[in-house]
Amino acid sequence: MLNGKEIVINAEPDQRVIDLLREDLGLTGAKEGCGAGECGACTILVDNESRLSCLMLAAQLEGKTITTIEGIAKEGEFHPLQEAFIEYGAVQCGFCTPGMILSAVDLLAKNPGPTREEIKEGMSGNLCRCTGYQKIVDSVEMAVSKMGKKGRQ
């Protein structure tokens, strides 16, 4: 399952997942920053948990549910995290954004009401060279409060 659709992938078993996504499947949202697990730009969700696609091989995806940033918006509507990132200026060059948002999705799934400290900790595997993180943490906080309100309605 890739972004909600059942698919069959033909790939070399030892191809890195980041290359499979970007080059073979045309999903260029995940970025390669370091290729060594340190920057988080290549984050994807595998069975709803954040993982680094630069440290996974294609064969590992068999039978798994994969979500990339391209699969986060639902029915043409942005995810509240995406809206908040845009609204609060948490995107500058955008290189880190897909990974940041997917890490935040994972964090909120495990902890729907994180404190600011918990947000920082939850996003600590994602590096951003542009924003200084303040606005990213703000955006996640805003998305949390919006999603909470929606949940209560």
Binding site: G37, G40, T43, E49, S50, R51, L52, L55, M56, S103, D106, L107, E121, G122, M123, S124, G125, N126
Partner: peptide
């Protein structure tokens, strides 16, 4: 240890 995705893997 590491970061959230490193701990997930």
């Amino acid at each position: 240890l590491g970061s959230p995705p490193v701990r997930n893997m």
